[in-house]
Nucleic acid binder design. Structure first.
Lengths: 187, 187
DNA sequence: GACCTTCTAAACCGATCAGTCTATTAAGAA
DNA sequence: TTCTTAATAGACTGATCGGTTTAGAAGGTC
């Protein structure tokens, strides 16, 4: 029999895409094995805790990526440049609306009750990091918080509508509108 | 054995709440029977087509409600008053953020591929009805379309974040902000 | 009462679920 | 080479899945 060797990081990325497309409950082990070409032996070798561990590690992986690529830059770099790069990073991460937000999708059904802290933390830190950058760029705290919330709300809503309408253009339009709103607030 | 008699409209409303909380895949027949107190016999009597028919009829029911309560008023009534009532209707329908949008949740996973027309139609008509009212209220077509899209995107995003953060206040804040934006656009 | 239709209850079915186990393979250490 | 260990393939298990069927209860009509 043919034997393929995987790295755990490959496994995380592959399984993540299955959860992203099918949701937590919709992603059965047979779906996962079929779509990833990882056998059950491999999956339970990497994730002895089964589906729940897979989802937890995937969320941690996503979280770490966002911290490095978006939240840290928003906190540490020059705020206007970091915010400008945030729109680009967001657009490419979500493939211009073709890829949904796994954490957002988990939030909408009972999967939320399995990972409440991870879900809450992800969005909380995104809003806080953006609000912090807006404050550093000169906005009052309250306005910064409102604007940051508006941005993350808009991104999530645009992802939902892009999938619902089968029209990814709405995602680009929303990002453009949000960045425009932020820029005019910054003056 | 004790026998309880249900109406089909009761069945639709009860099953709808289960799908809303658990999602399409997450809502197994045993979950549905347990939470609704409807036996399998009753469920398959009302919905011979099983889960798929349940979901289809629930979506049709939701759609009809929105047409009567929101889309028709937006099309037929005085536009500013209809838009003002839309915010209230939206707030009460989604129970100020405690209740998710079933159609939006379906859009995010593969459930979308079972009901693409219903999902697309729901959001398309919402945006069009609101944009139509905005045009009647005096806005240019392009601006009306953009604003209507922004409103529906914001509502969906706020529902996602309300659930993710376990904080329904964000839903009220978003509705207030959106209505403010619309009002200042109308002058 | 008898009869018929509508509806409910629950046993039952094959398929699929998440998860376990055994056998085997590849690769590094000695 | 030989031994050891990490990793893979896939058969297997008991539980649960969506769905079917059978049996009978409730309510109307005559």
């Amino acid at each position: 029999m043919v034997r393929t060797v995987f790295e755990k990081s490959d496994a995380i990325a592959l399984v993540a895409e299955v959860f992203r497309e099918l949701g937590y409950e919709g992603a059965s082990m047979s779906h996962i094995t079929a779509r990833t070409k990882l056998s059950k032996g491999s999956l339970y070798h990497f994730f002895p805790g089964g589906k729940e561990q897979m989802a937890a590690e995937i969320m941690a992986h996503i979280d770490a990526w966002f911290v490095t690529e978006m939240f840290k830059p928003l906190e540490d770099d020059e705020p206007r440049a970091a915010i400008a790069r945030m729109w680009q990073t967001t657009d490419s991460y979500f493939r211009s609306g073709l890829r949904v937000c796994l954490i957002g999708a988990f939030a909408l059904d009972e999967t939320r009750d399995r990972f409440p802290a991870a879900i809450r933390g992800y969005f909380h830190r995104w809003i806080d990091a953006l609000a912090g950058a807006l404050v550093k760029a000169g906005l009052p705290g309250a306005e910064a918080k409102t604007l940051a919330e508006e941005a993350v709300v808009g991104i999530q809503g645009a992802l939902t509508l892009a999938r619902a309408l089968g029209d990814d253009a709405i995602f680009g339009r929303t990002l453009a509108r949000l960045s425009q709103t932020v820029e005019s607030a910054l003056g």
